[in-house]
Structures are given as C-alpha cells and as structure tokens.
Design a protein around this nucleic acid. Structure first.
Length: 808
DNA sequence: GCACTTCATGTTTTT
DNA sequence: CATGAAGTGC
C-alpha cells in the first residue's frame, strides 16, 4: 500500500477505507502481474488492452476498489462509464462486493447516456431545454422526421425518414452540430440536410426533448461553451474509468477527453480486436490513437486468457493476425490442450442445422467425449438474424428447447410503446408524439383528415396537440363518431393527468389513506386503469390474431415492471434509457444469437455456422466499407471463436437459399485463415480434398487423412446418406489441391474460379445465357439474353460451354 | 376509414 | 421467399 504514505491522500480517506487499507487488500488477491499493474497504476492515463477472457472486469472493479482503498478518491469522485446497462449493473454489483458496507457513497457508474442525462438535467437551460425534458426513442425520432419531411417538401421516396434520421444520428455521433457539419459532407443532399438537421433540433427544442445522440452531444456542447461548468466536473470526477473504449464514437471521445483534460486520470479499457460497432459510429481510431491523445500513457496488455483452450485461442489468434490495423496482442493460457476447433462443410443450410441439432443431442448424452453438456452451455452464433430460421425450424421439429436472444426487445414492441405513450400523456398531456401515437389506437374514427385538422389547429394556435384537439372540437371542426370519441379521450387524459400529478403512494404501502384519497391511486392501479379506460386492453382482447394473447401478456408484464418504481415519472425515465430485458426462465435451452449479441459472453460449446463468403464476411460490409469493413468482419470472427471455452465448431454450407433463390456459396475466406494445426476437419474425405489452409498440416499429417479418422464419430450416417452428399462425392472423384475455398468451389461448380473476358458467352443460374460486356475485378457486367444487362459477381457465372457441367 | 392489393427490399444494435 | 410499406378500391 505505497500510496497511503502520500500525505495528500489522507485527507480523503474515510474511516472505513482506512481500516480497509490497513489489512491486505482482498481485491488484489489472485490478480496476475498485468492485472495487478493495471489496478495499481492509478495516476495518469492508462490504456488497459484487455483481450477476450482476460479478466478485465475483474481488473476494472479491483481498480475502483483500490482507488477507494488507498484513499485516492471518495466514491463520488470516481466516474465509471460503460456502454450498456448490463455492464453498468455488473460493475455495480462487483464493486459492491469489494466494498461491502464499508464505504459510504457510490461511484458514478452508468452508461454514457445515463450519466449524460444526469448532467443535462442540471444544466438543461444552457442548451435551451427545460429541466424536465423528455427522451425520444428511435420511433419518436422517425415520426418527428416524417413531419419535417412533409413540412420541408422533401420527396420521401428518395429520402426516407429513416435514412435522414440515420444521417443526423451519424452527425451527432461525430459531434457535429448543425452549424458545425463540415462542408466536406457534400452529398447531393448536404445543403438541405444541414437545414433539415437545424429544423429537427429546433423542433426538439419546442418539444422540450432530446434524442439519444443529444444526450451526449449537448453535454459536449455545454463543456465546450461553458468552461466554468466543465471545470466543475473536472474537479469533481478525479478518476475516470471507461469500459469497452474501442466502441466509443467521436462524441463520447470528446466527452471523455474534456472531462479528463485537467488531471488526465483516465483509464480506458478495451480491445481493438473486438471493435465490431464501426457501422454505428464507433471509432476504432480512438483506441488506436490513445497514446497520442494522452502522451505518457501507460499501456498495459492483459493477455493471459482464463476462458478458452489453447487450440481455440490459436485459431482466433491466427484469424485476427490477418488484420493490419491493430495494436497487437497475443492471448495465452495455462489451460489443458482440449479439442481442436472443428470445421465442417455441409450441402446446404438445412443440413447444417440438422447436423448441429444432432451434435447437440450427442453432446447432451455425452457421446462426444466431453462430459454431458447442458443445453445452457451451448450457443449458436450467427452473423445475421435470418440464419436463425433454419435452426429454429429444425429445433422445433426435433423438440430441442432453444432461446433466441436479441429479437425485438420488450420495450420496443408495439403494444408496450403504445401503452407507454398513454402513460406519457398521463404524466405530460403536452407530449405531442405520444398523443399522435395513440389518438387513433384503438380506432376512434380519427383518420388522416381529422388528425390533420387537429395538427393545424394546434400549430396555428401554438399549443400542444391535446389543446389543439380541444379547440378543434369546440370550433366544431370535427364531427361524427370521431368527435365524440375524441372528447372522451381528452376527458380521460385530463383525469389521468390529475392522478399522475396527485400525491403518489409508494407501492406496497397499503395504509388506509391510500384507498381513501381519490388521488391516492398508486401508479400501478393507475396504469391498469389507463389501459382499461383508453380501450387499449379491450382492443387486444377483441383481436383474434394469434399474437394478441402474447401482447396482453406483455402488457401485464409491463404493469408488473412498474412495481419496482415509486411513480410513473420515474418509470418513464428508466424505460427511455434502459431498453434491455432478460426474461429468465428456468428451463435449459440452447442459445441462438448473433455474433454481435454474443460479445462479452462465453459458452463452453459454441457453434459458428454460415462461414461463407458474402454471408460472413458480409458482402454488404465489404461493399460499403472495403478493407475496413472486412477487418471489422474479421474481428467479428475473432469475437465468435473466443466465446468458446472448450469446444468450437465452425461450419459452412455449399448452397444456401438467399431471398428465395438458391445460391452456391464459397467457404468464408476466414476459413482459409484458420491454422491447420489447431483445426480438425470433420468433413469427410473426398468432399473436401485440400483440407484447411495448406494441404498438409505443420503438426504432421494430412488434414483430410485426419478427417477420415472421424468417420462414425463426428459424421453421422445420415449426412452420408443425403442426396446432396452422394452428389458431391460423385463430383469429387479426383482429389483437389488448393485452399479450402478453392477446393470447395471446385466441388460445387466443377470448374476453377473462372476469369471472364469481355465478349465471352456465359451462363447464370437465374438469368440464363448472356454475353460479358465489361469486367471489373470480380464483378462482371453481362447482357443477358432474357434478363437484360446486369451486374453479376463472377463466381455465379460459368462459361456457357461448361454450363452443362453445373450439377444443379 | 379500412381491407385488400402490389411492390420493393433484403446485416449487424445500444442508448 | 417473406415481410413490411405504400397504393388502390370499396
């Protein structure tokens, strides 16, 4: 405890912490040297480069404990920022474990956004908002944007609201305000885009609202324009910790840099190799640049891995080593060697799913050499959501319990948002976006025309929509069923607002007064009555579609969720920021999710299906972002492999149905990057002549020979029995030498990767015969006889004369 | 205002 | 193919 000698430090040591410092610090126990250094280097900038499974959360929480234990900081002088609520929660629990009841006060731990809101609520007036501003979700944003598009006379066909909202979001990610969007952003749309951005911000101001981007950008603006405020927080937050630094965008980066500018006590934890959110504004550059941004920074690498076997780490390491833009890190472990990473090719996506299902059954019964593996320990990680369907279909038919993670989140479901809109109106009847959402839900006979009348009345008078609606009614501008229903709705909103503004009784507090006071409805009863009186519950009860019961369930669950809050306002605030839902249920299930969703998780057994070029790496990533995109995809592969603790199985299919059309697929280029010595090829010999990477594994032995030893163990009889398999075998009489991708391609198309010349006659499965008019790398321009001119990826073409050889 | 049609479109996702 | 959004007809 060298630091307790620091005279300065004593002033800050709370009694309890001093007691803690007196005995050996429990939080330092069992840390490896790198972790220990990361925990004990308290002053100045520190970059903790923490590879997958290297115990970074451990180090991070120990560091917080150490800051407190040495008396460096009082709890509220520490700011710890994460990206997700889940991460924040985990950090809170783990820090609490270290501290016990010993220390009073809690560090500022939360997401960028939640901390941003806290700061903004205090200084809202500095950016022209009132303290009680509301936070818009993506839905609201788009609805607002739609209105602006109409107002600005923009062609919504060419510029959909979604897209424009996305552009503005991007600008905010980069910390550009309307007046600071650089001219270099010169899309055809730029001039109007900036104007639209300004109009959008103006609209938010009148609504007294913020979108998610604003929560950060407004903070940055305040820091930049009000040095006194910034200084206050610089003094306040004496130590800053940041998790998942590789995921920060420019706005977050500025936010941090401004706050840390004085003392530079900032510790960023991250892994450049796990940066997979570039497409939503994350800048790997932030972490790559750290030492330049914070000169004198201590860079500490956490490379000892506590999660995976050496084979798994070697496979992941070899794949990621192909990336050029990285700080460099190599994971190692003391773990037992274990199984090699397994690689298998399939005929098509359905077969892949069937095989995985059978493997899981085998693992469950313990016939895979491992001890019986529980379903909870197994995950299937896919690149794109649509890949899940094949697995779901298969699991449904064989009765394999599974859970899909990452579908539409609870709070994003329509019924939940509708209900929330009602609650929002109860709290603030001036919430125009909420009003718009539910005026005609359930149907009240208020269609476009009526709603336009309301909008116009409100706009002309400069009042909120509820008030505008009231005036339109009084003016007799509305008639029929709509008018009557609207009057009822407005009355109801008034009544609800009365409840919501009345004294609130905490839940569980069943004193008699609760029932006596007419306003003493607690917020739970309030919520129930709002949903009943609005006719919303009835609407779903009357609905006979199959999903209606589920929606009613969700509404019940929503009301139940209210129990954790004291009032509706608190609940709404929470929900705006916390969009997660982990509905745990006890039954053991296989986990099915995307690679993105899997970051930060680990499973003993991991299946990585769909390793095919175009799917993974995704064609779109490569088209849109070139090498950068490819490298991000590769990091995704790295994330995928490193989720596995003991058994990792990679697979690909030769054929896959894409948008209803069958396409032949090439194994992913990432398959080529797998190190043969650490991979076991399960694909039967013949199907896959060349093996992985090179034909002969450095460790000795031909991979295809190794694969042949697996007959009956890894390959199931019915794989051989499938028509596809027999067909493939027939096609592969001669052994093929070359990389995995090439050989698979040869199997499938019975021809080498063809290069085409202009003028050549070619055949395409879908478009038929045509003539090549232009060649651009692997893309070819073809005039088809039937389908006309088209851009085609060369690998879907065959020279016309060999078209008869194509097996399907 | 609503039900039915056609048409385009088709990663990854948090806050 | 399959879903959602926009357009058409009642």
């Amino acid at each position: 405890m060298t630091h307790s000698d620091d005279p300065d430090a004593h002033a800050h040591i709370p009694l309890s912490a001093r007691a803690m410092a007196a005995r050996p610090a429990p939080y330092l126990d069992g840390l490896n040297p790198a972790q220990r250094k990361a925990v004990e280097t308290l002053d100045g900038p520190v970059l903790m480069l923490a590879g997958a499974g290297t115990g970074k959360t451990r180090a991070l929480t120990a560091r917080i404990a150490h800051l407190l234990g040495t008396g460096r900081a009082r709890p509220n002088e520490i700011l710890a920022v994460t990206f997700t609520n889940k991460a924040a929660r985990e950090m809170k629990t783990r820090v609490a474990q270290f501290l016990g009841e010993a220390v009073e006060g809690v560090p500022w731990m939360g997401t960028f956004h939640s901390i941003g809101v806290k700061l903004l609520r205090r200084h809202a007036e500095l950016i022209g908002l009132k303290q009680g501003f509301t936070i818009l979700d993506t839905d609201d944003q788009i609805r607002l944007m739609k209105q602006l598009i109409v107002a600005e006379n923009i062609d919504e066909k060419r510029w959909p609201a979604r897209m424009l909202a996305g552009i503005i979001d991007n600008w905010k990610n980069r910390a550009w305000r309307p007046e600071t969007v650089p001219a270099s952003e010169s899309d055809a749309f730029n001039a109007r885009g900036v104007a639209l951005y300004a109009a959008y911000q103006a609209r938010l101001k009148t609504l007294n609202a913020c979108d998610f981007g604003d929560l950060l950008l407004h903070c940055v603006t305040i820091f930049q324009q009000h040095p006194d405020v910034l200084e206050k927080y610089q003094r306040w937050f004496r130590y800053i910790l940041v998790d998942e630094y590789q995921d920060t965008n420019v706005a977050q980066y500025l936010w941090l840099r401004l706050l840390a500018a004085g003392h530079r006590n900032i510790c960023c934890v991250g892994d450049d190799d796990q940066s997979i959110y570039g497409w939503r504004g994350a800048e790997v550059g932030n972490i790559l640049r750290f030492e330049r941004d914070f000169p004198g920074a201590e860079v500490i690498r956490l490379e000892q891995n506590y999660r995976s076997t050496p084979h798994i780490l070697a496979a992941a390491g070899a794949v990621i080593a192909t990336n050029r833009d990285r700080l460099g890190k190599e994971l190692w472990t003391e773990a037992e060697e274990g199984e090699k990473v397994r690689l298998i090719g399939h005929w098509d996506g359905e077969e892949e799913a069937r095989w995985v299902g059978e493997e899981i059954e085998a693992l469950q019964s313990g016939t895979r050499g491992l001890d019986r593996v529980g379903l909870d320990q197994i995950a299937i990680l896919v690149r794109a959501g649509h890949q899940m369907r094949a697995f779901e279909d298969r699991f449904l038919t064989i009765g394999m319990p599974y859970r899909v993670i990452g579908g539409p989140r609870f709070y994003e479901r329509m019924e939940i948002r509708d209900a929330m809109a009602y609650f929002r109106l109860a709290v603030s009847p001036a919430d125009d976006l909420a009003f718009e959402r539910i005026v005609n839900t359930p149907r009240r006979g208020l269609g476009d025309k009526a709603q336009q009348t309301i909008q116009r009345t409100a706009r002309d008078a400069g009042v909120p929509l509820t008030e505008g609606a009231r005036r339109a009614l009084q003016a007799g501008a509305l008639g029929g069923r709509g008018a009557k229903e609207l009057a009822r709705l407005l009355d109801a909103i008034d009544r609800w607002h009365g409840w919501a503004s009345g004294p609130q009784t905490p839940p569980g507090d069943d004193l008699i007064e609760t029932f006596e006071a007419p306003q003493g409805l607690n917020h739970i009863e309030m919520a129930e009555r709002i949903l009943d009186e609005s006719g919303y519950t009835a609407m779903w009860q009357a609905d006979k579609t199959p999903e209606a019961p589920g929606r009613l369930d969700n509404l019940r669950e929503l009301v139940k969720a209210l129990e954790e809050f004291d009032n509706l306002q608190g609940f709404l605030e929470h929900v705006a920021l916390i969009m997660d839902n982990d509905s745990e249920d006890a039954t053991e299930k296989v986990t099915l999710m995307t690679l993105h969703g899997a970051k930060g998780l680990e499973f003993p057994v991991v299946f990585l299906p769909g390793w095919e070029d175009g799917l993974f790496p995704s064609q779109r990533s490569m088209d849109e972002s070139g090498v950068k995109g490819l490298e991000e995809e590769r990091r995704l592969a790295y994330v995928g492999i490193t989720r596995a603790e003991v058994l990792c199985t990679i697979s690909f299919a030769a054929n896959r149905r894409v948008y209803g059309q069958w396409q032949s697929q090439l194994p992913s280029r990432f398959v080529d990057e797998l190190p043969p010595a650490h991979v076991e090829v399960l694909t039967a010999p013949g199907l896959y002549g060349g093996g992985v990477g090179r034909a002969v594994a450095p460790g000795g032995g031909d991979l295809s020979a190794a694969a042949s030893g697996l007959e009956g163990r890894a390959m199931r009889a019915d794989v051989y029995a499938s028509p596809g398999w027999r067909r493939m075998q027939a096609r592969t009489a001669r052994p093929v030498v070359g990389t995995a991708r090439e050989s698979a391609h040869m199997v499938i198309n019975a021809t080498a990767l063809p290069a085409f010349d202009a003028g050549e006659r070619v055949f395409h499965q879908k478009f038929g015969y045509g003539r090549v008019s232009e060649v651009e790398g692997d893309k070819v321009f073809v005039d088809f006889e039937k389908a006309g001119p088209r851009h085609i990826v060369a690998r879907f073409l065959v020279p016309a004369e060999s078209a008869d050889d194509v097996p399907f």
